[in-house]
Amino acid sequence: MTIIKTNNLTKKFGKFTALNQVNLEVNEGEVYGFIGPNGAGKSTTIRLLLGMMKATEGEAKIFGLDAWKDAVDIHKRIAYVPGDVHLWPNLTGGEVIDLFIKLRGDGNKSRREEMIERFKLDPSKKCRTYSKGNRQKVALVAAFASDADLYILDEPTSGLDPLMERVFQECVIAAKNDGKSILLSSHILSEVEKLCDRVGIIREGKMIETGTLGDLRHLTRTNLLVETKLPIIGLSELKGVYSIEVKNRTFSFQVDSEYLDSIVRHVSQFGIVRLESAPPTLEDLFMRHYEGVGGAF
C-alpha cells in the first residue's frame, strides 16, 4: 500500500520554482531516503506533505488523504522531526515533550522515559540552554515515544554526535520492524544507505532518480586508494576503473560498484600494503547521472 504519493507536485515562490513536477511514492513499511544537496527542495516537499504550504500545482496525498485539506486527520498518524528544531526558550525539555505528546494525543509515559533515557536527554533543563543537538533530541524523543504510522524526518541527525546517531538509527530500525513507514531526508548519501530500502534523489527541485540502492548501483562509484609492494600493471585496461592518479606506488581511482570484486582481485596480486575506500558521495552520483543522460547540466 502506498502511504505517501505525490503527483506532479510543483511549488513556486514568486517566479522561482522550488519544486518542479515531483513524483514521490513511499510504501507501507519501508524506509525511504530522500536525498539531495542543500537547497534541492527536500524541506519544501516535506512542508507541502505536512500541509504547511499549498502546492502551486499537482497534489500530495498521505494515507490517501489530501495533504492540505485533511492535514489534521493526517497528522494524527504522523510524527515529524525537522532539521532545525526551535523550542520555547523558557520551557524545559520535559515540558515541551509533554506538550507534544498531549497535542498528538497518544504516546505513553514509559515510552517517553525510555526514549529520554536512550537519547541521554536532561529533560529538566530549559530549552534556552540546549544545543542544536539537544533540541533535536527533544523532537526525536517526542516522535519516537508516539505511536505514529508515518515518520517524516528532515535531516534529523544534523546536530547529533555519532553515538546519538547510532541510537537514532536503532530507533528507525525498530520503527520499521513494527511496520511503520519512514521518510528520511538527508544530503549525505552514506547516511541513509544503511537504513533505506529505497531512495529518491532530488536536485534543483526535480527528482532525478528513484529506486532501491541496488538499482542505483550503476550510478555509484567507490573511491579506492591502494598502496602495493609491486607497481600495479594493467589497471587502466580493467573495466569500471576511472580517473587513476599515481603517486609513487600509491594509486587512487574510482571504481564502478558492480566491478569492485574483479578489480580488488586484480590489485591484490601486487601485494597490498594499504587499502582505503571511501563511499560514493552525492556529487559523484550526480556526475554519473549527468554523464548517463549525455552530460546535460
Binding site: 515529524y80 526551535h86 497535542l103
Partner: peptide
C-alpha cells in the same frame, strides 16, 4: 519566524 509554530503545526492541530 522562530520555528515553534512549525513544530505545533506538525501535530493534529488546526491551521
Amino acid at each position: 519566524e522562530d520555528g515553534q509554530i512549525e513544530m505545533i503545526r506538525s501535530f493534529p492541530v488546526g491551521r
